[in-house]
Every structure is written in structure tokens, then in C-alpha cells.
Design a protein around this nucleic acid. Structure first.
Length: 576
RNA sequence: UGGGGCGUCGCCAAGUGGUAAGGCACUGGAUUUUGAUUCCAGCAUUCGCAGGUUCGAAUCCUGCCGCCCCAGCCA
């Protein structure tokens, strides 16, 4: 049978790139970039862009650069540039070239002087408030600045003095001279440079002026030879500006502009890239804005950027998500220009799918109820052999100590079973995984009537190897031998917010009002002994409970700490 | 009263004039010593609405409606 090769869906960006290659545009090359500003940790939304940019490059035999967009030293921090590199690598991508926009400060400066000489940029003395007034509104045109028609010589002199640090912060800007009446507000003489006497993480105090995004970004793309500059929808309005700067500057045709890069060994063949916008991917029950994530961290609403409930990549990593699951997730979602909110369940489905195939099975009891098997001697001991994976023999087997006194999950017993309940009930039978069929004979209670333990008998004929082992019972439950159990801290994580759209403030409430109080429940559980030796970040399926990971930071052999990654799919509790 | 986008199943998303892909979710049923997994089947006479063009329209035209983004010396 001719299986269709699983070719990735042809979303519109892949189509554009394929068409460009077919037409020989950009010399048939594909060069992309992931350009984060180092002002926060990477999150799932960034992962979409990372997968897209690195993916498109890889699929087309091209390259993808990592570029830090560090043009605003007021907000940026080296802590973030380190974490971003760690996260991109962890996600599974390797950049071709690592750059900073600050590597191009000389180029930006030369380009700005060129615009001035072309009569396309001017130094404006208007204050920020005045600029705002002159800009007009969405529906009414702006007015030209009184400084708009200064001579080229005066502009050049003033700009050089800005660069020399002669003027106070905010006292002047360099602006592009485009059209104060443009319907697109980005074209109403946008700022190119502002004065900010701040120490920059890379360039120190060398520059008292810093370029604006619209100018720096397109030039950075051009000097790196980027062919397809992929960004999110809100930059659609900026594309005319992107194109305008590049057309005026003509970086491929003007070697003087990139001369500083030759001198520093950073030169690459310049190109005139094409900006293409796609929609961000929002996910239900979470927030993705850097501002809100920062607030959660700063106000200690979560336990740092890598809190396992955070949608940051470091948070997901600590939660136990695999890079593969995250990549599968975004591939499954696709790329379009439609604003959307993706069901959190899709993400969860991706980790389950990945972990089902790769996580060894173990047993752990998180809400213990004691079961004593009365037809076994109190000192009975044996070590049944259990498969580490039900479908993959390559995972091998392990020995799990078993005795007459067990912990089982409290939830696996119902004194008055609901119709359809398949587990243990007074007088009922259930299979103990790998051991045999046990019948509940007696329910022990305390003075208040709460169940404190169970007593039962194990059907000797149902033990492994006996003919009766094949006997069918409705349910199979997991267990841990009380005498051998290892106590552990287990964190049961759930969604951070209890409403699908925490960003929605139409009811007067904000995301802070919707924090889920049950997003992290810490319990003491009992593990089968092997688990005590787990390595940090090792993942397991605790049978019938879900997937768990040994905490990256706090787990230690002898002091096990596990995080619940995600529960198993459950078709029973929903209908019960 | 401006400019730029977007409206296809509960959630994503293909489709670009020839008679609605796929995934997730969901619902049946089979297998199962995880109520998991796996398997098999079902799941849009209809593409925001209304007209029009055409033998034929989700795709073209016209007009409405709805949602998102833009008035930082942020990115």
C-alpha cells in the first residue's frame, strides 16, 4: 500500500517561500531569523515563532539566525539573553549565527546620515508631548513640525551632536520625513533615533542615542541577508515603513553602509527581505503577554519564571513537557492570519502522545488507603516482575516489592459504588496490577465513620502463572507495598487560571482575579522504591494517574520531588 | 469621519471557479492486567449575511454585519 508521505501542511508562508524559490527570488536562498528582545523569558508564543523560523529555514536548506533586538537598554537585561539561548537550544534548535542588533549600531548611524543627506530625515526639537499633539488622531491628519524643513547641513550637524552626547535625554529626535497626513499613522514622520544616555549591555556608554524598532529591525534583517522576515500581525501596518527604509537605504547596493561590518568580520551579503505577518497563537486558561508574566513573577503570584504553571519555556520544561511535544503542538496548530484561542487540551494531548511512547511506567499512590491482605502471612514478601511499558518490550521489566500490607488509591474504593464503578467495593473484586485478584472483605472505620483501611483476600488461583490469572475482573488498580514505599513530595499542577480567557476584562475583572487557587496542590505520596533513584528531569507514567517528572531543581535521590506534567485522559470521571 | 487585517464544524485549519482535506475534541463499537494506549466507524447539503455574475461560487463582483490591530522618543 502506498502510504502518503506525511508532508507538513502547506500553510501560506510555506507557499510563499516555495513560490519564491521556484521563481529564483533572493537568489533561491532562504534565510530567516528569530529576533527576541531580551526583556523577558521566552514563552509558548515565542515557541511558535521559533518553530516557524527555524523550521522554514531547515525545510529549505537555508539558515536561521538568532538575533537579540537590543535597541532599548532601559528594558533589557543579560539574564534574559542567557535564558533565551538556553530555551531555544532546549526546544531543539541550533542557530546559524548569533547576533545583536547592537552589532549594527554603526550601520544604523551611517544609514541615518544617508537619509539626512537625501533630505529624508530631520532633527526635531519638539518634545514628546508636542510630537503627540502634532501627530493628529486616527481620523484626522497630523501637522508638520516647525523643524521639519531644516537644511541638510543643519540636520547633519545636529544629528552628529546628538550622537556626541551634547543634548539632554528626550530633547530631540531624528525623524523620517514621510507624510504627516498619511492614513497609516506609522508613516507620519516616525522617529528613527531618540536620545537616551543609558549604559547598554553590549556597547556600554558608547552611544547616547538609540535607534527605534522600525528602523533598526529592517536594517538588521537586510545586513544579515534575511530573505523572509516573519513577524506577527500587529506589524502589518509597519510593513510600508519597513519597505520604505530599505528602499531608500539600498543596503545591497551601498557597500559604504556595511563597511563597519566588514571591519569587524560580521559582514554577510545584504539582501532586501520581505516581511510576512502571521497570527499569534493564544492558548486558553493562560496569559501570554510579557507584561503579565513579569507581574506574576514580580508579585510572587507564581514561584519565578520557571514555575511549572507558567507558559514560559523554562516553566514548561520544569513542568516536564518535552520539546518534541511543544514542536508537535505548533505544527498541529498551523500558521494563518486568523486570531485564535487554542484549546489548552491540544497542548496536553501533545505531551500525552509523546510521553505515552517514551515514559516508563511506575506505580505510586498519592492519596493512600491501607489494604491488608489477610490470607498472606504478615511477613510475606515477593517481588513480582512488571513490564516497564505495555507496548514496547525494549523498555524491559522491573521487580516491584509486594507484601501483605499495601497502599492503594483512596479513590479506587467506594463503600457504596456508583453504577459502572469498576474498582473495589465491599465484597467486590479488583485486580492488583501484576499480583492477582483481591476481594474486599472488611471496611475499617474510625469513630467518625471515615474509612481508615480495608482487609481482603487474594485469590491464590489468580496469581501470575496460575490458570486463574486470566480470569476477567472489571478493574485493575495500582498499589505500593507499605513496607517498601518511599515517601515523596508530589505536586499536582493544574491550569494557572480558572477561566478560559483570563485576558478578558469585559466583566470588570482582570487576570489577577482569575488565578486558580487549586493550580498547585502539594501532597505526600508513596512511590515504588525504584523511583527514589530517579534522575532530575526523568519522566515517568505513574500508572492510572498521569505523567510525572522528577523536579529539575528540588528532586534529589533520597528526597524525591515529583511534578505532575498532565493527567491521563479520563473518560470515567467525566461521566460519573 | 482614517489606515491595516480577519470571518470555513465545539477548537485549530486546508481550499485560490468544478461541486467542503486533515488534526484535536466529541459519539458509537472492538481490543486491553493502566476506565490509558491502539484500532474501526460516525461527525459542515454547507463556508458571517444579502444580492449579483456563471452551466457551475467557500472561491469572482456589489452592499451590509462582526471581530482584531494602529494615535510610544516600546518592540
Amino acid at each position: 500500500m502506498a502510504e502518503q508521505p506525511a508532508s507538513p501542511p502547506q500553510h501560506f508562508i510555506r507557499q510563499i517561500v516555495a513560490a519564491d524559490r521556484a521563481a529564483g527570488r533572493h537568489g533561491g536562498q532562504v534565510v530567516t531569523r528569530f529576533p527576541p528582545e531580551p526583556n523577558g523569558y521566552l514563552h509558548l508564543g515565542h515557541a511558535k515563532s521559533i518553530c516557524l523560523n527555524f523550521g522554514i529555514a531547515a525545510e529549505n536548506g537555508g539558515r536561521c539566525h538568532l538575533r537579540f533586538d537590543d535597541t532599548n537598554p532601559a528594558r533589557e537585561d543579560p539574564e534574559y539573553v542567557q535564558s533565551i539561548q538556553d530555551d531555544v537550544r532546549w526546544l531543539g534548535f541550533a542557530w546559524d549565527t548569533l547576533r545583536h542588533a547592537s552589532d549594527y549600531f554603526e550601520v544604523f548611524y551611517l544609514g541615518a546620515e544617508k537619509l539626512i543627506r537625501m533630505g529624508l530625515a530631520y532633527v526635531d526639537d519638539l518634545s514628546a508631548e508636542q510630537v503627540r499633539e502634532y501627530r493628529g488622531t486616527l481620523t484626522s491628519p497630523g501637522r508638520e513640525s516647525p523643524f521639519r524643513n531644516r537644511g541638510i547641513g543643519e540636520n547633519l550637524d545636529l544629528f552628529r551632536r546628538m550622537r556626541a552626547g551634547e543634548f539632554a535625554d528626550g530633547s530631540r529626535t531624528l525623524r523620517a520625513k514621510i507624510d504627516m497626513a498619511a492614513g497609516n499613522i506609522n508613516l507620519r514622520d516616525p522617529a528613527i533615533y531618540r536620545i537616551r544616555k543609558l549604559t547598554h549591555q553590549n556597547t556600554g556608554d558608547a552611544w547616547p542615542i538609540y535607534p527605534m524598532y522600525d528602523y533598526a529591525h529592517c536594517v538588521s534583517d537586510a545586513v544579515e541577508g534575511i530573505t523572509h522576515s516573519l513577524c506577527t500581525l500587529e506589524f502589518e501596518d509597519h510593513r510600508p515603513l519597513y519597505d520604505w527604509f530599505l528602499q531608500q537605504l539600498d543596503l545591497p547596493g551601498d557597500p559604504t553602509l556595511t563597511a563597519p561590518l566588514r571591519a569587524r568580520g560580521l559582514w554577510l551579503p545584504p539582501n532586501t527581505p520581505q516581511q510576512i505577518e502571521f497570527a499569534r497563537g493564544n492558548i486558553s486558561y493562560t496569559v501570554m503577554s510579557k507584561r503579565k508574566l513579569l507581574t506574576l513573577v514580580q508579585e510572587r503570584l507564581v514561584d519565578g519564571w520557571d514555575d511549572p504553571r507558567m507558559p514560559t519555556l523554562s516553566g514548561l520544561r520544569r513542568r516536564g513537557y518535552t520539546p518534541e511535544a511543544i514542536r508537535t503542538f505548533w505544527e498541529r496548530i498551523g500558521i494563518s492570519k486568523q486570531n485564535s484561542v487554542i484549546d489548552l487540551g491540544v497542548l496536553e494531548g501533545c505531551v500525552r502522545e509523546d510521553l505515552d511512547a517514551r515514559a516508563p511506567r511506575r506505580m505510586a499512590v498519592l492519596d493512600p488507603l491501607q489494604l491488608v491482605i489477610t490470607n498472606l502471612p504478615p511477613d510475606h514478601g515477593e517481588t513480582p516482575v512488571l513490564a516497564n511499558h505495555p507496548k514496547d518490550a525494549a523498555f524491559g521489566t522491573r521487580q516491584v516489592p509486594f507484601s501483605a500490607r499495601l497502599w492503594i488509591e483512596r479513590e479506587d474504593f467506594m463503600e457504596r459504588p456508583l453504577p459502572g464503578f469498576h474498582r473495589l467495593a465491599p465484597g467486590g473484586e479488583v485486580r492488583l496490577r501484576g499480583v492477582g485478584i483481591v476481594r474486599c472483605d472488611e471496611v475499617l472505620k474510625d469513630g467518625a465513620g471515615s474509612v481508615t483501611g480495608l482487609r481482603g483476600t487474594l485469590d491464590p488461583d489468580s496469581r501470575p502463572g496460575r490458570p486463574g490469572a486470566e480470569r476477567k475482573v472489571k478493574g485493575t488498580i495500582h498499589w505500593v507495598s507499605a513496607a517498601h514505599a518511599v515517601a515523596a513530595e508530589v505536586r499536582l499542577y493544574d491550569r494557572l487560571f480558572d477561566v478560559p480567557d483570563p485576558d478578558d476584562e469585559s466583566d470588570g475583572k482582570t487576570y489577577r482575579d482569575h488565578l486558580n487557587p487549586l493550580s498547585c496542590r502539594v501532597v505526600r505520596g508513596f512511590l515504588e522504591p525504584m523511583l527514589a533513584a530517579a534522575a532530575a528531569e526523568e519522566r515517568f507514567q505513574f500508572e492510572r494517574l498521569g505523567y510525572f517528572v522528577a523536579d529539575r531543581h528540588q528532586h534529589a535521590p533520597g528526597k524525591p520531588v515529583f511534578n505532575r506534567i498532565v493527567t491521563l485522559r479520563d473518560t470515567w470521571t467525566h461521566r460519573a
